[in-house]
Design a protein around this nucleic acid. Structure first.
Lengths: 275, 275
DNA sequence: ATGCTCCGTCAAAATCTTTCATGGTGCTTG
DNA sequence: CAAGCACCATGAAAGATTTTGACGGAGCAT
């Protein structure tokens, strides 16, 4: 094999994984360790990789190490599509209340740079939107729940009593015919108040949430106004939502860079309401 | 496993949970405790985490808000020393209110992993402490002031009316005989309420703040209880503070790894008040 | 005191660097 | 043309270095 080809292959292997042990590279290429060492040294000198004891790591962007993304990985593409679709339903100038959670965080991502007023009790969402010039951000205080970084409790509830928004966007831990559930009763308590703040209540949830229950019941299905789900929604669940009188928006996850055009809308047009 | 990979994994585990015991990390990675210790030490040195008794907590930089870094450069070492000294004056189990600002952010850094209850209106500080298991965090909500990431306004003030803390720690834009000044009147309004919340009021400010005025007067010197300054404090300013009846703590910035022992304390010992 | 954690030391294992031998390639030269 | 030679990439081995795991004593809080 040509030395140049071998090095390119080497770089490719390391880049793909983010790292590689010398041993694995020797086995992969079928050359001696000396050769691999020399190649790695050259690549290090060129700045493409960084040599470490026992192997090498990719020197460029920290492509967030595939192994580390496990948890976020659950229905990530679906969540992104849901976020884009939900954001597309928000008008410029609107006020939105965003609950905590990974799905609502995707909504926030899709809202970055939009001229909207966002109220949230989620620290990650606040962090995301604080830098934005266009977005007005109002943070709900309270006791910060360490695992998820959301503000809960009486302080958060009290703060919401003086706040009204056009749309309250809430996540869900589980959705069954009996209603919407979440895992934590303190969280549910706070979310109930959120629902009172919103002229409309939008639930965002990927299809895996359907048929699952969680600890605490947030509300009945009919208490929400609309829901955004991904394409994996089963027909029976769709019927259940329609039956409860919800506007159902199905987000298509086909293309990676979802452009946020809602793919499907049932039960009439949403009324325009520019400010 | 590659050492580099192991460290990244380690950092990821700690970042995810905010805190991890050494034991849990040993079990998770399947390596010896010595190795984990060494890795944690390296990560601590790099500033990514902070080593604690029996484990480690996340202490990484608060990214994605570049605006905050600009001012950090000024008197960075002094500020770190001030932070360490101020944190050393806080007892375990205490409740503390932390104002926004780069100096108070250093106080928060020094408090990471301590068993204290922190109330703050600063997004960066909240971000820093949200992960920590030992630290209870209560966030004050309100309109997020984009430039600095602090929550201000009526919502913040209202939230504080139900809160009492042992020590309120406030930053200052300028300190002159007429009192303590800050640059923004909305900020000052909020800070006034902070002072009412605290049994004691501690001002943290590096020596460059002395003799400088700012837009809005926060309070007279005598309204604060104590002040933490760095070693650059001039004699005349020291006399001014003493004259106002403040406890003055001078932070020594000599060693890089500030251990937080107050270098000098005037006007009596601080009284112990364990919970 | 007891249990837990931390720190320093040490030996074993893994890895790195250096050095040298081998074989192929291309050029020079008789 | 072909032998000789320098050159280079490669593989292998030896000694140096780093990393790792284990152990014992020190420090600290309960």
């Amino acid at each position: 094999m040509l030395a140049e080809t071998r090095r390119r292959l080497l770089l490719d292997l390391i880049t793909r994984q983010g790292y590689a042990t010398l041993d694995s590279l020797v086995r992969e290429l079928g050359v001696s360790d000396s050769t691999v060492r020399r190649d790695l040294e050259a690549l290090d000198l060129a700045g493409s990789i960084k040599r470490t004891h026992g192997g090498a790591v990719y020197a460029g962007e920290v492509r967030s190490m595939p192994a580390f993304d496990d948890r976020t990985g659950t229905a990530a593409a679906e969540k992104r599509a849901i976020g884009a679709t939900a954001a597309a339903l928000i008008e410029d100038g609107d006020t939105v209340l965003l609950d905590g959670g990974t799905t609502t965080l995707e909504v926030a991502r899709a809202l970055v740079g939009r001229r909207v007023q966002v109220v949230t009790n989620s620290l990650p969402i606040a962090q995301l939107l604080a830098a934005s010039q266009q977005t007005d951000l109002i943070l709900l205080g309270g006791y910060i729940y360490p695992r998820t970084g959301v503000a809960l409790g009486p302080l958060a509830i009290a703060a919401m009593q003086t706040i009204r928004v056009r749309t309250a966007i809430l996540g869900a831990g589980g959705i069954v015919p009996e209603g919407v559930f979440n895992s934590n009763s303190l969280l549910v308590e706070t979310e109930r108040q959120m629902m009172r703040c919103g002229q409309e209540v939008m639930i965002v949830a990927d299809h895996t949430k359907f048929g699952r229950m969680a600890l605490a019941r947030l509300c009945g299905l009919e208490e929400a106004t609309s829901i955004v789900v991904d394409g994996g929604l089963r027909e029976a669940d769709r019927a259940m939502l329609d039956g409860a009188g919800l506007r159902v928006h199905v987000a298509q996850a086909n293309d990676g860079r979802a452009n946020g055009v809602p793919a499907e809308t049932s039960r009439g047009e949403r009324e325009r309401n520019d400010v």
